[in-house]
Design a protein around this nucleic acid. Structure first.
Lengths: 192, 192
DNA sequence: CCTGTATGAGACATCAATGTCTCACGTGCG
DNA sequence: CGCACGTGAGACATTGATGTCTCATACAGG
């Protein structure tokens, strides 16, 4: 794994293919292998050489999404300082992956009875733990369960990604919109 | 259109088929016509007699979703009283349709360049107007745009519907969880 | 220069879902 | 009773995506 072999005109960059596929599937979750290949600038044959099939591609995207989520969680230091600041850091870190997350979030509805990737459970637990910590310190209200807050955060990330995609929200406002709604809600606060 | 003809054992109830389909597609958005027919307790042939194809079925579901949303908006009286109470009424009224809405919300990602049903625009406008009214009266903060609040409400409704479906949230808490997060956010309020 | 390797293009079979059709059955109605 | 109507079951062709294959090409390295 130390030396990479470059051979032809364009030595297919697995990571580039995955990111292109993620961007496409975020917009059109039913895109065909042919469309994914064209979007990545490679032929369908080559795409199929690197990912055995559509399933394998989605699984690879899932693995990428999990990896990015965990990296975001690590970078957000969810155990340090006020929980609200940690939530803000988390959303900021996770923003670049929001589109991919939105795709996987809806795609996961397909994983019905099957065992879902253990990575998601780990991420769910870490995020729920953050909200639980905030409740323990008195920062967060306790009538909203950590599980729901976690789920809601996913939903808002997906909504935010789509809203930006369709031009209903400015990209630069993404983090602010999500964090402020998530933490403060729509009601105007009495100056505290 | 005044008298209905009953003919055979089970005179297919169009509304029943639609609601069964909605419930199924909420759980498995890729269900086939065969699965939809089985879920509704009719044969694929009969299903196809009532809905020309999958497209027609989805369109019918869209029309149903729009109708239920508008009915919920009417019942919620969005122009009366405090805007926050109106939001609460709206979520309560829309709760039974949340599953269908969640399906349509993700399905709409497919309506890429096509003209989306004008009904959604009308609903978007009415909900956005409610948030705008709340901002005008000083109830709602003004740094979150009405368009984003509307989008976020859709996202939370979908998240809530799925969370209930998977048992992560108790059905009876649905409205409370959504309204409280939407309006108040996760932060604990200073006693106001 | 020659070989190895990965690609692009395209042909091909396969499979699942769809849409269409026919036919037999059972019920309501005349 | 007999007719009309809607249904269920199943056969059938069609379509679109998928997975597999072959072959020509182009570059890298020896």
């Amino acid at each position: 794994m130390s030396h990479v072999r470059y051979s032809c005109l364009m030595p297919v960059d697995r990571d580039h293919v995955l990111r292109t596929a993620a961007a496409l599937l975020t917009r059109k979750s039913t895109a065909t292998m042919d469309e994914v290949a064209k979007a990545a600038g490679i032929s369908r044959a080559t795409l199929h050489r690197h990912f055995a099939g559509r399933d394998a591609l989605v699984r690879a995207l899932e693995a990428l999404g999990i990896a990015e989520c965990e990296a975001a969680l690590d970078a957000a230091r969810p155990d340090e300082g006020p929980a609200s600041d940690a939530v803000r850091r988390l959303v900021r870190e996770i923003e670049p992956s929001a589109g991919l997350l939105a795709f996987l979030y809806t795609e996961n509805q397909l994983f019905e009875a099957e065992q879902q990737n253990a990575g998601w459970t780990r991420i769910d637990d870490r995020i729920a733990a953050l909200f639980r910590r905030g409740q323990a310190t008195g920062e967060f209200r306790i009538d909203l369960t950590p599980a729901w807050l976690t789920e809601a955060l996913y939903g808002l990330l997906a909504s935010g990604a789509w809203a930006v995609l369709e031009g209903r929200v400015a990209p630069r406002d993404f983090t602010h919109m999500i964090v402020e709604l998530m933490l403060g809600g729509a009601l105007r606060r009495e100056e505290s």
